[in-house]
Simulated scan of single mutants.
Amino acid sequence: MTALIGYCFDGGAFLVADTTRIVNHPNTSNYWAHVQTDKIGLATCGTPIDEARLALHSQIRSTDGVQKIVNTAINSYRPFLLKNNIADTNLLIFGHEKGTGFISHLDWNSVSSNFNIFNYSSGSIVADGILPSDTIKSADSLLKKSKTLAGGYQLDFWAQSIMNTLVNHTASRSNSFGVNPIGFPIDLMIFREIDKKNYQSYKRIPVPNPNLSTMIQSKVSKDIFTIYM
């Protein structure tokens, strides 16, 4: 089971996943995807399709904009979804383009045999996986509690709180949700428009943050998860 929760803000987008479903960068041991760009990432939820993921990676270029990446993702995944009669694979494409944050949610519709596309802008919370509507309500409430004295929002602590809520909820109802309830570890990623002298997302060096749970992976020294709105 996978849960994806995203938050879109003025200059970028943030995503948390309960498994390593944020796509691997090709030919590396790093399971974080930049989809070959330092501004856009992609995450999957539902049945994993490695062939589709590899097909997508082989076609995306660092110069591609979000619309081209969305179209490429659809063209890469759709044949495999149809071939294997899969009904529960969705995609989240997130990041920023020309300094504006975005999240595109590609929701596979097995009836129409195509993706429904939902686009989100600044101030939006997006959830996919278990209980998405309930998750958004909880996430919105917990976001307010992540506010700092200086007026920022600590998205890494917010992610830990909302995922902990989901983990506890699904663990108590594992028989209803299946044999793989949501669980830790969780992964975090943020793309934002920042001075490149101080932030280069393609140079990601994992550095544990002692203030966060050890069950949070992919904490990186150059990632700044506090935002101001």
Rank of each mutant, 00 (worst) to 15 (best):
N168L: 05
P132Y: 02
S141C: 05
L188P: 09
D38M: 10
N211S: 11
S112N: 12
I227W: 13
S29H: 10
A43D: 04
N198F: 10
N175Q: 11
S62K: 06
R173G: 06
N27S: 11
D88W: 00
G151K: 12
R61T: 14
M1G: 04
I125W: 09
A139I: 05
D140Y: 09
N71Y: 08
I125R: 04
L82Y: 12
V207I: 15
D134S: 08
H169I: 14
D107T: 02
N85A: 11
K137Q: 13
T37E: 09
F118N: 06
K219T: 15
S221K: 13
V167T: 05
R61E: 15
N116A: 09
V111F: 14
I5Y: 03
S29V: 15
V220Y: 13
N27L: 15
K222H: 12
P132M: 01
N114H: 04
D156R: 01
H105I: 00
L4N: 01
Y120T: 08
N30S: 12
I182M: 10
I205Y: 14
S122K: 08
I103W: 01
I93S: 07
N84P: 01
I86G: 02
I136R: 02
P210F: 10
T135Y: 02
K137V: 15
D195R: 07
T214V: 09
T135C: 08
F94Q: 05
S62Y: 11
I130Q: 02
D107V: 02
N75L: 14
L131G: 01
K203G: 07
N27T: 07
I216M: 13
A17N: 08
P48L: 07
S76E: 03
N114G: 09
S58F: 15
V126F: 03
M1A: 06
Y120H: 08
H169E: 09
T63C: 14
K39F: 10
D88Y: 01
N211C: 11
K219A: 10
G123Q: 08
P185E: 06
G46F: 00
N71Q: 12
Q36A: 09
I117T: 10
Q200W: 13
S58I: 08
G41V: 00
L131H: 08
L149I: 07
I162G: 00
I86Q: 04
S133H: 15
T72K: 14
F102W: 02
H96Q: 13
S121E: 08
T20N: 15
R21G: 05
D18L: 06
V23D: 14
Q217R: 11
I227L: 10
I194F: 13
L212Y: 13
Y228C: 09
G152V: 02
L143C: 05
S218F: 10
I227G: 02
D64W: 05
F184R: 09
L92Q: 14
A52Q: 05
V207P: 00
T63G: 06
K203N: 14
A139G: 12
Y7S: 04
A3T: 07
T100A: 14
T2N: 06
S176A: 13
K222G: 12
P208R: 12
T28V: 11
